[in-house]
Simulated assay, not measured.
Amino acid sequence: MRHALISLALLLPSPLVLAQQPVQPPTPPQDYRQLATMPELSRALMRTDMQDHLMALNEIFGHLAENNLAAASETAENRLGNSSMGKHAVMARGQGPGRFMPDAMRQLGWSMHAAASEFAEVAKEGDTAKTYSALQKVMTSCVACHMSFRTR
Rank of each mutant, 00 (worst) to 15 (best):
E40A: 14
S42F: 09
R43Y: 07
A44L: 15
A44E: 14
L45S: 03
L45Q: 15
R47S: 09
T48R: 14
T48V: 02
M50S: 07
Q51P: 00
D52W: 06
H53L: 08
H53R: 04
L54C: 01
M55T: 05
M55R: 12
M55W: 05
A56D: 07
A56Y: 05
A56K: 06
L57P: 00
L57G: 06
N58Q: 13
N58I: 00
E59V: 00
E59A: 15
E59F: 07
G62H: 09
G62T: 11
G62L: 09
G62C: 05
L64D: 02
A65P: 00
E66N: 11
N67L: 14
N68Q: 03
L69Q: 12
L69M: 15
A70D: 13
A71K: 09
A71T: 00
S73E: 07
T75I: 14
E77N: 11
E77L: 06
N78M: 14
R79Y: 11
L80Q: 13
S84G: 04
S84N: 08
M85E: 13
M85A: 15
G86W: 10
K87S: 12
K87W: 12
K87V: 08
V90H: 11
Q95V: 01
Q95D: 14
Q95Y: 02
G96F: 06
G98Q: 07
F100Y: 15
F100P: 02
F100T: 04
P102M: 06
Q107W: 01
Q107Y: 02
L108T: 00
L108R: 03
L108W: 01
G109N: 10
W110G: 09
W110I: 06
S111Q: 11
M112E: 09
M112S: 03
M112Q: 08
H113P: 00
A114W: 02
S117L: 09
S117T: 14
A120H: 03
E121F: 02
E121P: 00
V122H: 03
V122Y: 05
A123C: 03
A123Q: 05
G126A: 07
D127W: 04
T128N: 05
T128E: 15
T128G: 00
K130V: 01
K130T: 02
K130W: 02
T131K: 06
S133N: 11
S133W: 01
Q136L: 13
Q136H: 10
Q136G: 02
V138D: 08
T140H: 12
T140Q: 15
S141D: 06
C142D: 12
V143W: 09
V143D: 10
A144I: 03
